[in-house]
Amino acid sequence: MSGQQARAARERSEQERAADASRAGSTVSFRPVSEFLRTYLTVGIFGALGAVIVAALLGAGRILRPSRPTPAKVENYESGVDPIGDMWSQANIRYYVFALLFVLFDVEAVFIFPWAARLEAYALFGLVEMAIFIFILLLGLLYAWRKRMLRWV
């Protein structure tokens, strides 16, 4: 009997403590997460939502669809003919020069965006500076062009 009462009292006091904590959280203007980080939390939530929608659709499909795999059915389709040889075969992909150029210009974009947003403050100095920067990058592109790297050979 006394044990039950003690347990009930303990539960009550726990509930009160939880209520106190929630009241304190709402009245005291202490923010554990800044607005800045919350923005990225929202971004994260949207990312998770995208994954959840895909998962929900695939999950619904799992309930509805049949599953009767046969050896012919699970064979790779390719062009409809039985595949021959290794699937991850070597191919001349010709892209590595483009990838290098991409890195060059993508890094440029990292610098150019903050500059663009603050151009009014930098005025002529910033303009000349960026013109020189872009000119040097263009030289890189011209070099690749002259070396016939941009051709599809």
Partner: peptide, 27 residues
């Protein structure tokens, strides 16, 4: 499409094959 059978090719890299639509739609 919900009622169509889910076929993963025998030689496919199953994890990468299944993860690809997630990456595209999440982006």
């Amino acid at each position: 499409f919900l009622q169509k059978e889910d076929i993963v090719p025998r030689r496919a890299d199953r994890f990468v094959f299944k993860a690809a639509p997630f990456v595209v739609l999440t982006s």
